[in-house]
C-alpha cells in the first residue's frame, strides 16, 4: 500500500512538474526577440544586398562565394572579419551604422545599419 502511494505521489509530482519546466523553457522564446540570421553574400568581387531589418543581437553571416580572399572590415574598427575563399563566418550585430570594406580590395564597400 505504502509502495503504491509513493508511486502515485511520484507520478503526480512528475506529471505536475513537466509542463512547468516546459513552460519555463519556452517562456524566453515567447517573450524575447528571436535572433535572426542575415546572410551577406560576396560574389564576383562585390557584397550582395545588405539586409535592412537588422536588430542588435541578430546574427550577420558573411558568406564568401568568391575564389579570392576577402574581408568585412569596419571603418570604425568595430569588426574585422577575414573571409577565405568559400568561407562562412558569423558575428553578432551591434546597434549602429557601420561603413565597411574589403581590406584586400578597398573598392568593395557597404554599409550595415543595425537598429
Amino acid at each position: 500500500m505504502l509502495r503504491t502511494m509513493i508511486l502515485i505521489a511520484s507520478l503526480a509530482l512528475a506529471g505536475g512538474s513537466l509542463p512547468v519546466n516546459a513552460a519555463t523553457k519556452a517562456a524566453p522564446h515567447a517573450t524575447a526577440p528571436a535572433h535572426v540570421v542575415h546572410a551577406i553574400v560576396i560574389d564576383k568581387m562585390q557584397y550582395g544586398p545588405i539586409p535592412t531589418d537588422v536588430h542588435a543581437g541578430d546574427i550577420i553571416e558573411w558568406v564568401n562565394h568568391d575564389i579570392f580572399e576577402h574581408s568585412a572590415t569596419a571603418r570604425d574598427g568595430r569588426f574585422d572579419v577575414d573571409l577565405k575563399p568559400g568561407a562562412t563566418v558569423r558575428m553578432t550585430a551591434v546597434a549602429g551604422t557601420t561603413a565597411f570594406f574589403c581590406k584586400f580590395h578597398p573598392g568593395m564597400t557597404g554599409t550595415l545599419v543595425v537598429k
Binding site: 564576383k44 568581387m45 562585390q46 568568391d66 579570392f68 580590395h105 578597398p106 573598392g107 568593395m108
Partner: peptide, 17 residues
Amino acid sequence: KSLLETGLKLFQEHQMH
C-alpha cells in the same frame, strides 16, 4: 567570359591599390 569579367574587377582593384 564571366571569369574574365570577375578578373577585370579584381585587376581594377589591384590597379587602384
